[in-house]
Design a protein around this nucleic acid. Structure first.
Lengths: 165, 165
DNA sequence: GTTATTGCAAATGATTTGCACAAGG
DNA sequence: CCTTGTGCAAATCATTTGCAATAAC
């Protein structure tokens, strides 16, 4: 886990007049133990490995806290549950491409895109706060070779596959 | 309602070997009676005015059909229910700006943005299928004048306010 | 006549909440 | 201590589904 997460969380907790607790530390640790996206349920399972007493309710409550502290970001992958992205501290303005073929999620950054978005927003009379781009796409390699492997593995993070109902 | 919706729906239904029914006609009519975004529940209410027998289940089932037929598009406005957008036929690649202050939704189009997104996608080795941009922003007028009126009313559609739980 | 469709009520699944007990400062 | 945090189970809320009755073709 990035040095600083725990500090930032503590600072946020202090500022809000809340209390630092074992559970919050454990859940934060679990959340930032990998750079993969996760759901509340997945985090619950990870946290349970660190402390088998952990309750789902506390995981949900701590997730809200982490989002409010801007340490975690909620993203919508099109399945019907909230996915959490722990990589915004490292890449503050990245976006997501979802492979329609296998559900794999690719994170990407593009400053031109950010800039253009900013311009459009201002032109409409608003002050940009946050932009979310989700691109759904087919894998070209799949089309050409009949497979959708991890061709761009080095650029891949957030390896979650989309779950269908 | 745009002339052509009903035709497109019928064509889609025929092609899939389904049946044209009174309920589907009514629900489609209700869905495209305005250019505003709506939720399943709101559509249910509209449809009930046309036929008080209409059931929620049929509304949900017909919504899936309309989305599959690409007549309607699902969008995520950050409340926890699916919002449906009937304006993609007219503006096939528009995006959404959500005012953080009042929840108002502004639709906008920008070909530069589309083009850039396409480039990024191809660079990553994918074939673009659909892109979704959601911009969250503050109203400049609100900041300057203390109010967030419908300043850009002519560009406004989808007038739904965000509902909080 | 078959088979798809509908309405209803019950089921589902993610997330939230009430409450009694435990822990932080 | 006094208040906030936690675990548990029950409650919520949007959406889906099973089923018997009904309507397309």
């Amino acid at each position: 886990m990035d040095i600083g997460i725990q500090e930032r969380l503590n600072e946020f907790i202090r500022r809000k007049g809340l209390r630092r607790t074992t559970q919050r530390d454990i859940i934060a640790k679990a959340a930032f133990s990998k750079d993969e996206h996760f759901t509340a349920e997945e985090l619950f399972e990870r946290a349970r490995k660190l402390d088998s007493e952990t309750s789902r309710a506390t995981v949900y409550r701590t997730l809200s806290l982490l989002v409010e502290a801007d340490l975690l970001r909620e993203i919508d992958l099109g399945d019907n549950q909230t996915t959490y992205d722990p990589n915004f501290l490292e890449k503050p303005s990245h976006n997501h491409l979802v492979c329609i073929d296998c559900g794999r999620v690719v994170e990407f950054e593009d400053s031109h895109l950010d800039l253009l978005n900013d311009c459009v927003t201002r032109r409409l009379g608003f002050k940009p706060v946050r932009q979310t781009i989700k691109i759904e796409a087919n894998c070209e390699q799949l089309r050409l070779k009949g497979r959708c492997p991890n061709l761009i593995a080095t650029r891949l993070t957030g390896k979650r596959l989309r779950r269908r109902r």
